[in-house]
Design a binder for these strands. Structure first.
Length: 282
DNA sequence: TTAACTGTTGATAC
DNA sequence: AGTATCAACAGTTA
């Protein structure tokens, strides 16, 4: 799935597009993703769109919200009017037919536009929540890694008692949110820290360096509109992101390290593919 | 053919 | 509290 930069890219665009639109119909093409009564949205007007962690909130004017998680393979694609067939789109898989075989839900608006929720693996979900329910759910989420609430002191305290590889700990959402496998690998490279190092072994300086690297990589991901491999992630218009072009180590096994030229390696860690330079990440 | 991957995260058991 | 394992699912790759 999209990590924080991808979800943020989608959210920013939806903020421009969705407010003011009125729902005419909610078509559920698969029973699993929807949790709650989709009928709540019919006739309601969208007020705002926001994000926390990797979740997107669409707030309606009737005190209800659609809270969306894209998980591994979710997409949100907006189409204004008729879907053209074979429109020569760069990531045209979806544009040839929407709904596609992976479309799980379609929000149809009064003006004829639609928001499609595609999800190949059906891990994603759309919850129907009142304002109170949503806010209490969001309260249980730890802050984003780029949030000022995540201080170096906080990370040092949390990491110091974890005898797991730092890479695994960076992905632990009970500490902070937003990082996923791609940006974690790249942040560790930027900080010159091995993904296999135990979190508890990091010095204060290393903790600070790594936090800075995480923030930098996430912000760069946002700047470049996210990361697209195999067309899995696309933005609201269906276009790929740009971060994969500058990725330091992710999916670069066998290619030279951008710093020292050593070949990038890939090993499994915590069940996930882990990419790193065996020489300059200590 | 089969097994092991894949951008997430939650529940559970120890 | 910290750790390890499994689960959801579909599709691609070794």
């Amino acid at each position: 799935m999209p990590e924080l930069p991808e979800v943020e890219t989608i959210t920013r665009r939806l903020k421009d597009i969705l407010p003011g639109r009125v729902v005419r119909e909610v078509r559920q093409l698969h029973p699993k993703p929807f949790q709650g009564a989709a009928e709540r949205f019919i006739g309601a007007t969208i007020e705002s769109v926001s994000r926390k962690a990797k979740q997107i909130r669409i707030k309606f004017n009737n005190h209800y919200n659609a809270l969306i998680h894209l998980k591994m393979t979710g997409q949100l694609i907006f189409v204004d009017g008729e879907v053209r067939v074979g429109g020569g789109h760069p990531t045209a898989d979806w544009v040839r037919e929407l709904p596609s075989k992976h479309t799980r839900c379609q929000f149809l608006f009064e003006d004829g536009s639609s928001l499609f929720f595609n999800d190949q693996r059906i891990f994603g979900w759309i919850k129907v929540l009142s304002n109170e329910q949503l806010e209490s759910e969001w309260q249980t989420l730890t802050p984003d890694i780029i949030d000022p609430e995540i201080t170096p002191e906080y990370l040092e305290k949390k990491w110091s008692r974890r005898n797991q590889p730092i890479k695994v700990v960076l992905l632990d959402t009970s500490i902070s949110n937003g990082l996923g496998n791609i940006y974690v690998c790249d942040a560790l490279f930027e900080a010159k820290i091995s993904p296999f190092r135990l979190a508890s072994s990091l010095t204060q300086l290393e903790t600070e360096t790594l936090q800075t690297a995480c923030q930098a990589v996430i912000h760069e991901g946002i700047q470049l509109g996210g990361t697209t491999f195999d067309g899995m992630y696309v933005n609201v218009e269906g276009f790929a992101g740009g971060y994969q072009k500058v990725a330091r180590v992710y999916k670069r096994q066998g290619l030279p390290c951008l710093r020292c030229g050593t070949l990038i390696e890939k090993k499994t860690l915590g069940g996930r593919g882990t990419y790193y330079c065996p020489v300059c990440q200590i």
